[in-house]
Every structure is written in C-alpha cells, then in structure tokens.
Amino acid sequence: MAENIRFHFDVDGENFTSAGEASVAVKKKLRQLGFPPDVIRKVSIAMYEGEINMVIHADGGTADVEVTDDEIVIILADHGPGIPNVEMAMQEGFSTARDNIRALGFGAGMGLPNMKKYTDEMNIDTEVGVGTTITMKVYL
C-alpha cells in the first residue's frame, strides 16, 4: 500500500441512538477495501464497544482508524472522567454504568475486556479528570 488509509470521526456524546455509527462506517469501508471477514469483525466490534463506552462514560470523543501494510490501528480519545482503576475496569463484569444504561443493553462490564479480546494489542492511557485514550491494534 503506497499510503496509509486514515478515517476520522467525532463521536457525539449526547446521542445514544447514533452511537456506533463510526464503527458501522469503518466496517463498510474495510469491506470495500477487501479485508478478510474476521479482521473486519475484530476491528468493528472493538471499535463499537469503545464508541459505546465514550458515549456512556465520557460525553463523546474522537475515533481515528489507520490502515497500514501490516496492521489496523484504532485510537479512541475522550476528555471524560478517566478510569481510576484500570485493572478493575478490565475485569469481566465490572461496570460503573448506571441502570439506565443497562436498560439499553449495555453496561454489563464486558466493554473493555471485549476490546482486549478482539484486538492483538491494546493500550489504555488514562488520567482521572483529564480523559482516556485507548489505542488498539489488529494485525493483518
């Protein structure tokens, strides 16, 4: 590939209904680019969970996807409350989501573990009161 392909999205934190639109768009683009279904699925699920998290916890943020010759990099950045205890947040079933979020089908404490499960690398850079940047990589 001559030049890396990049996508940028602003994730609207106000609107739960539109959450996931960026992931749907990325999925569509990766499909058009002819990537294998398992790669597309990994990228889109990890990004979707991250997008939902940004809407639930952080009042939105930005999502950037870069496709290089050997990996797809997803960077999700927000200016939300930050994650006080990353180790705890990575445990399956741990959630700080409110009941109204659970009623919408999320907040089961599977978001971050799922993102890790579906990607080859995941790094969480977070500071309480400042925000969180999650970088995920799926190898090609």
Partner: peptide, 15 residues
C-alpha cells in the same frame, strides 16, 4: 426483547 437502534448495530457487528 430489547428495542433500540443498538440491537441492529450489534447484529451488524456480529455479521
């Protein structure tokens, strides 16, 4: 039994 747009997006993500 859940009714919101995320049901459709989730199904889409999972093919």
């Amino acid at each position: 039994g859940l009714l919101n747009s995320q049901v459709i997006r989730t199904a889409n993500m999972m093919d």
